[in-house]
């Protein structure tokens, strides 16, 4: 549950069957993200369906649906956020060719969890930014070919516009002050005025 003031922050979900652990991480992320908590795998899947979430902190070993199983379901579904696996062991491997984006070892202190989440938000932010540029360019191309009235009833234009708006909001919330590239992009005149 967000505290209402994190509206423009990245959205994180903390999943752990131990409520104490989930709640502790959630408090550690306050101010940085809008945080939700889930106390089990099934609950995590529902949370991801309900809302566009950016980063999930996923406890690996939960009774019932384990973290690995939740991850598999994410892959099967259309979840496009980043996943940080929280494990009890510290194998000290790079995340290269791991099925998740990063991992943290319990117990996780405030700085580590914040740094890991910020990092994933930045990576995701630039990914979304790339998508936004592509969609926004397309939107502008369609826009140039249509009159103001035609745009209103043009399904493809409306869908592209909605998608571009959504991506822009997401990129801004993920990148925060780093979203300058967006403003630069806006400033480029493409119609040769």
């Amino acid at each position: 549950m967000g505290d209402g003031t994190d509206e423009d922050c990245p959205r994180a979900l903390v999943v752990d069957d131990e409520r104490e652990v989930a709640d502790a991480y959630a408090l550690r992320l306050r101010g940085l993200c809008e945080v939700e908590t889930a106390y089990g795998g099934e609950e995590a899947l529902r949370a991801v369906e309900d809302r566009e979430l950016d980063v999930v902190l996923l406890d690996r070993h939960m009774p019932g649906l384990s973290g690995d199983e939740v991850l598999d379901r994410f892959d099967e579904g259309d979840f496009d956020g980043r996943v940080i696996m929280v494990t009890a062991i510290d194998p000290d491997f790079g995340v290269l060719d791991m099925p998740f984006d990063d991992y943290l070892c319990k117990p996780v202190d405030r700085e580590d969890v914040q740094a890991a989440v910020t990092h994933q938000c930045t990576v995701l932010g630039y990914e979304v930014l790339g998508d936004y540029f592509a969609v926004e360019s397309k939107r502008r191309v369609i826009e140039a070919e249509l009159s103001a009235e035609e745009r209103e009833s043009h399904d493809e234009f409306q869908a592209t516009k909605a998608r571009a708006d959504r991506l822009e909001r997401r990129a801004r919330r993920l990148l925060g002050d780093e979203a300058d590239a967006l403003d630069e992009f806006e400033a480029i005149g493409r119609e040769g005025e």
Binding site: R60, H61, S66, G67, D68, I89, P91, F93, D97, M98, P99
Partner: peptide
């Protein structure tokens, strides 16, 4: 082996 086991979630 350890690396693959960690990726596979085999503990």
């Amino acid at each position: 082996i350890r690396r693959a086991a960690f990726a596979d979630g085999v503990q």
